[in-house]
């Protein structure tokens, strides 16, 4: 097309083609949204050996949950036998973690027990058989709500404990966690415990993680290299006088939790 008309037609076609291509690209990517904040870094936990202290009361136990609490034997703490700490207790233990954030995954590397959590952000759900093949650290999927990472965890092996005090859970436990940086060096974590076997309704606590110093590093932790506690543990049931008062509040959805 070397005539003036031909060149003009070519120009129009190229321009229109570029415009359509750009529009198509924009349409396929959806409306533009700001990139999520980067939560990566070395974070120090707010040590919480007893969740009821953070909550300000015992959790809203079912009759079954209350009886489990009343009779719990703290010598049976799974971590005392080097079994994994569980997904939420890793964030209340007195050891730091490294958070590594990518587009499709967030990895949590806990110093305690040198154990990890993988949070999948690619839109997948939980495996159909996760209840039959549970994880001590649970199976986690997440998504961003503006600047908050929202994580949904199921398939948590019921042998894990929720804390050092001895709050337990069933295989039906579902955790909802919200991670949000409040300042450059602090991150707020709100965890909601939803377990109809143990609790009459979901309940939540909030803790604050503090960023470590630039030269902080994860230190080694191999639990069973010299675990001499095991042979000296004796049964200990500190809650035998616990009096359960059935929960008066109706069941409510946790604030900001995922739809069910």
């Amino acid at each position: 097309m070397s005539t003036p008309l031909g060149r003009r037609i070519r120009g129009v076609v190229l321009t229109l083609g570029s415009l359509f291509a750009a529009a198509g690209l924009a349409w396929s990517q959806g409306p533009s949204r700001p990139a999520p904040p980067d939560l990566s870094g070395f974070w120090i936990n707010q040590y919480t050996p007893d969740l009821s202290v953070a909550l300000g009361a015992q959790p809203p136990f079912t009759a079954f949950g209350a009886e489990r609490w009343r009779t719990v034997d703290t010598s049976k703490d799974p971590t005392g036998h080097c079994l994994p700490v569980g997904p939420s207790r890793g964030f209340t233990a007195p050891f730091p973690f490294l958070l590594v954030q990518n587009t499709d995954t967030v990895s949590i590397l806990f110093e305690y027990q040198s154990i990890w959590r993988a949070i999948y952000l690619d839109g997948r759900g939980h495996p159909d058989d996760v209840a039959e093949y549970p994880y001590f650290m649970g199976h986690s999927v997440g998504h961003w709500e503006d600047d908050t990472l929202v994580v949904d965890t199921t398939g948590i092996d019921e042998r894990s404990w929720l804390d050092t005090a001895g709050h337990e859970h069933s295989a039906k436990l579902r955790l909802t966690e919200r991670f949000q940086r409040k300042t450059p060096d602090t991150m707020q974590w709100t965890v909601t415990y939803d377990d109809p076997v143990y609790f009459t309704r979901p309940w939540s606590i909030t803790r604050t993680f503090t960023r470590g110093k630039p030269d902080d590093r994860l230190l080694p932790y191999t639990c069973n290299e010299n675990n001499k506690d095991v042979e000296h543990l004796r049964p200990h049931q500190p809650n035998l006088n616990y009096k359960h008062t059935p929960d008066a509040k109706p069941a409510t959805k946790p604030p900001g939790g995922p739809g069910r």
């Binding site: 050996p49 007893d50 034997d73 703290t74 010598s75 703490d77 971590t79 005392g80 233990a93 007195p94 305690y112 050092t164 005090a165 001895g166 506690d229 000296h232 543990l233 004796r234 049964p235 200990h236 500190p238």
Partner: peptide
């Protein structure tokens, strides 16, 4: 002694 990451009182 603070409550350790496993039970002080059991031992």
């Amino acid at each position: 002694p603070l409550m350790a990451h496993h039970s002080f009182a059991a031992e």
